[in-house]
């Protein structure tokens, strides 16, 4: 074809089309989640948070077995011992090993945090999802939506402390009561977020397109709505878990939470109050440190997750 062109410099010949091939998309194809992991790995604070969290979780599982004492074993002769190679975190006034008690307490905290977050998640997604999906679908739909939202509003208005105290009166104070108390009002926030997300997503053109293509309601929810909310749901979870943990410590500190002899960071801190002046600093220091570290770890990791998962924070 180019034979009929006049003679010129080779450089000024028409370019070989091969130069421009395979240039369209050269970067590897990353799914949303792969991309998110990359973003988190690049975020220092998030990595620190993640490492701390992993350490706390691992130690809460194996920690108590690393020392030859159990969390409830008393030894009155060894009360209030400072840190030593026998008792790494010292002992309390009843001679119980603080290391063992700290990690036993960690279990309680994590169980409460994760359990109440999961309950929030299930109830919140169900109520918020139904409410948001039904809104705007005829009269019945709107009625279901406003009925559910009224419940949410009522619960939102009740202070959780009141609920906890009431429940403690009715039920036996303890782990289960605590989880129930925290979940009764806790799911409301999740429900609101999920409903808001669904309302927003429903208007998105890709959902309209799916509707127009004849995709079933179930598939629209599973393939279009849920995957696009997962980021925000996970971020919300990483912030509700530490809230629940803190609530547990706080309530136990006040004597409203788990009861002795079960170890909890809150009860340990409470027990330590009287001994501060006698110089047994480790009694208060370790529970307080653990509460702070856990809060920090969750929040640092949660912030990183938010940056990576929340579509509104691009770049």
């Amino acid at each position: 074809m180019t034979n009929s062109l006049p003679e010129t410099d080779a450089l000024f010949r028409p370019a070989n089309p091969a130069h421009f091939e395979n240039k369209q998309i050269s970067r590897p194809s990353l799914s949303f989640w792969q991309d998110a992991v990359l973003k988190i790995v690049k975020n220092k604070m998030a990595v620190i948070g993640f490492v701390l969290l992993t350490a706390i979780i691992v130690l809460s599982i194996i920690g108590p077995y690393l020392v030859p004492y159990s969390q409830s074993e008393q030894s009155l002769t060894e009360g209030n011992l400072p840190l030593s190679s026998d008792h790494w975190f010292g002992t309390d006034d009843l001679g119980r090993d603080m290391w063992a008690r700290i990690w036993a307490g960690a279990r309680i905290s994590l169980i409460i945090g994760i359990a109440s977050a999961l309950i929030d998640l299930v109830i919140g997604i169900t109520v918020g999802g139904v409410s948001g999906y039904m809104a705007g679908r005829g009269k019945t739909g709107d009625r279901i939506d406003s009925f559910l939202m009224r419940i949410v509003e009522v619960l939102y208005g009740i202070p959780y402390l009141l609920v906890v105290i009431l429940l403690m009166v009715i039920m036996e104070p303890g782990l289960v009561t605590m989880i129930i108390a925290l979940s009764i009002t806790g799911w409301v926030g999740m429900a609101r977020i999920v409903r808001g997300q669904i309302l927003q997503l429903k208007q998105q053109e890709f959902v309209l397109a799916a509707e127009k293509l004849g995709t079933s309601h179930g598939k629209i929810i599973i393939k279009h709505l849920l995957p696009n909310m997962m980021g925000i749901i996970i971020v919300t979870l990483t912030f509700t878990i530490p809230q629940a943990i803190f609530a547990e410590s706080f309530l136990s500190f006040l004597g409203l939470g788990v009861q002795a002899p079960t170890a909890s960071w809150g009860t340990m801190a409470n027990d330590a109050l009287g001994t501060i002046l006698s110089g047994h600093w480790w009694r208060l220091f370790f529970p307080a440190l653990m509460i702070s570290l856990t809060m920090f770890a969750f929040n640092a990791f949660g912030d990183g997750l938010q940056d990576a998962l929340d579509p509104r924070s691009k770049n």
Binding site: D9, L11, F12, R13, P14, A15, H19
Partner: peptide, 13 residues
């Protein structure tokens, strides 16, 4: 160059 209908070798370099 990649979109140009008249691209020449020199344009690429």
């Amino acid at each position: 160059a990649a979109r140009c209908p008249f691209a020449m070798e020199v344009c690429v370099m």
